[in-house]
Design a protein around this nucleic acid. Structure first.
Lengths: 215, 215
DNA sequence: TGTCGATGTATCGTTTCGATATATCGGGGA
DNA sequence: TCCCCGATATATCGAAACGATACATCGACA
């Protein structure tokens, strides 16, 4: 679950844990607020599996200023310590501010693992997080797999909507409970129509892109 | 988290694990599909804390048929075994079909624990599950606490919406990623207006109910 | 000078999950 | 008649995720 997310983000760019977390939280917004207590263990698992590895931080992964020869005593000291660490074979670099960083990069094996995890159809329909995550990386999926993902998700939501309506019928008279259930079904309906738009756009895209190979 | 849910349901009625799970899933619908792997340990914790205890199953907790003197060999055998178990001091009863059941009831201590967990304000705003759960049991809350819950939740959602919009602005050009983020903000907006309706209804309710004690 | 907030890595104990084992019954076919 | 399937039911295991917290380092500001 988290592995897929990490690999997907590292596919774009080498990153250290802290930044990785920020990207993930930003990307997945609402759902799935990943914590350090899950991130670092997951990175450890991936590292043990040779799916990611620590790279020497060539700094400026994003748009960082090119470290203008410090000018501060503290920074000099940190730089010294960093050199000492490097001499000991540790691939860490002090960021501008903050503790020394360990920058991770994805490996070839990690690329393959990413493909496998992303393609796993079973995991992606019922669980909201799993689906959202896979949609976020949907551009790495072939057209048919992407469409399949959307349609399987839609089917799951329709079933969920059904269950919701049944619950609503069976529910008691408590105002708050009913309101919760009602709102739940509304959200599901909204989700389904959103998926419908996505599916339509997807079909349109593939239709226009294969006008040289007709039926 | 799960403790609150369990206590809330048991407050209505004595139930065994399996049925408890069904009620919870029905009640909380979409979110929070509670599994046995968390339910039974949670029940164990509650039992150790004297918040719930196994009660002799007087059967027919809901609308079960009054066990029409079986008529089947298997059932007779099961009944015999049940009697044997009862003789050994185990409070279990065979259901109509299925393995012997252990029916739980809430204790006085459990009632107090329920109040405490429900009233815990900090836990209820940012986490979706925590809020939904507390809303489901909102009828057990005093008016002001209920209103406070709704308003804190609203504030949290407004903040979330802001973060979502910022993410959207900072996001790349990937269609699926953007769509995900957009849909997320739409859902949050929908959530907020739902909360607004709830809050309005709540104010209206308290206003009409204290027309004898004006400003 | 001190301390505060942001950046950053890491681990601990607890909770939750998903899978699986076990057990019992009723009902539907071979 | 027998046997197997599906529903009902409890229970546990290992893995995963979480929340809290500790630790470390820097820049900025008073």
């Amino acid at each position: 679950m988290l592995e897929l997310a990490i690999l997907g983000v590292l596919k774009e760019q080498d990153l250290h844990g802290y930044e990785l977390k920020r990207r993930l939280t930003e990307m997945l917004g609402t759902f799935s607020a990943v914590s350090f207590g899950s991130l670092y263990p997951a990175l450890g698992r991936l590292e043990r599996a040779d799916a990611v590895k620590a790279v020497e931080a060539n700094d400026a992964p994003a748009a960082a200023p090119p470290s203008p020869a410090t000018g501060s005593l503290g920074a000099e000291l940190a730089a010294f310590r960093a050199r000492a660490r490097a001499a000991r074979g540790e691939v860490r670099s002090p960021g501008r501010g903050g503790r020394s960083r360990k920058v991770y990069g994805i490996t070839v094996k990690g690329d393959r693992l990413f493909e496998d995890l992303l393609a796993d159809a079973a995991a992606s329909t019922e669980d909201d997080r799993a689906f959202n995550l896979r949609l976020a990386f949907a551009r790495h999926l072939p057209d048919d797999a992407r469409l399949g993902l959307l349609e399987r998700r839609r089917a799951a939501l329709v079933e969920r909507l059904d269950r919701g309506r049944r619950s609503l019928k069976a529910a008691g008279t408590d105002t708050y409970g009913r309101s919760l259930l009602e709102h739940g079904t509304e959200v599901t309906e909204h989700d389904i129509s959103w998926l419908d738009r996505l599916i339509a756009a997807e079909r349109e895209r593939t239709r226009t892109s294969r006008e040289d190979t007709p039926t």
